[in-house]
């Protein structure tokens, strides 16, 4: 958990950094290969990504569809702006909740860090209305995870 750093930059950007124990080539590929993306970009436990379109070339399309397995879900579309294998990805994305959120401009860089990779992702801080919409969808999931943990705790009791 301490590996992830998340900071606001002014009131318009969020900067996320995370170290990985793999070379930049592998981390970059895990961000551009649909088969790999579907294994990890899932959010809360129990969610899946049945549709993953990732055309990793400038102008290429992005479409991720998530499902909670109970008929719930949402999707995201986007376009690639710039790709520098295996060090930099610039793309634009928007979520549909169900109305589209304002475009989020995201720059992700992968830098060699010893035997691993330091990933830095810089994105727009969404406006208040978007944050509220995201929180409303996220809070349901968060509460769900909370119930699961509670169940685990109860089972541990004698």
């Amino acid at each position: 958990m301490t590996k992830l750093s998340l900071k606001t930059e002014g009131d318009r950007f969020v900067v996320v950094t995370r170290r990985f124990a793999a070379a930049p080539e592998a981390v970059y590929r895990a961000h551009t290969d649909p088969k790999l993306i579907q294994k990890w970009m899932l959010g809360p436990d129990g969610w899946t990504m049945p549709v993953c379109i990732n055309e990793a070339r400038p102008g290429g399309k992005i479409r991720y569809e998530w499902s909670d397995g109970n008929g719930g879900g949402f999707y995201l579309t986007g376009e690639f702006v710039e790709l520098v294998p295996f060090s930099r990805i610039v793309h634009v994305e928007r979520m549909y909740l169900p109305d589209p959120t304002p475009d989020n401009h995201v720059t992700t860089t992968f830098a060699k860090d010893g035997t691993g990779t330091l990933m830095t992702m810089r994105m727009s801080l969404p406006d208040a209305a978007t944050r509220t919409a995201m929180l409303q969808s996220g809070m349901e999931h968060g509460m769900e995870a909370g119930y699961v943990r509670l169940e685990d705790m109860l089972q541990l009791r004698p």
């Binding site: 590996k3 998340l6 996320v16 592998a26 959010g43 208040a128 944050r131």
Partner: peptide
Amino acid sequence: EVDAWLAMLRKALSANYDRLDGVLAAMGP
């Protein structure tokens, strides 16, 4: 409200990247 949103983002990203650690380990050079 911003803090709540950032906390949600942190939670979602932490879960994703912890999973990505496993994917990367399975990939192998």
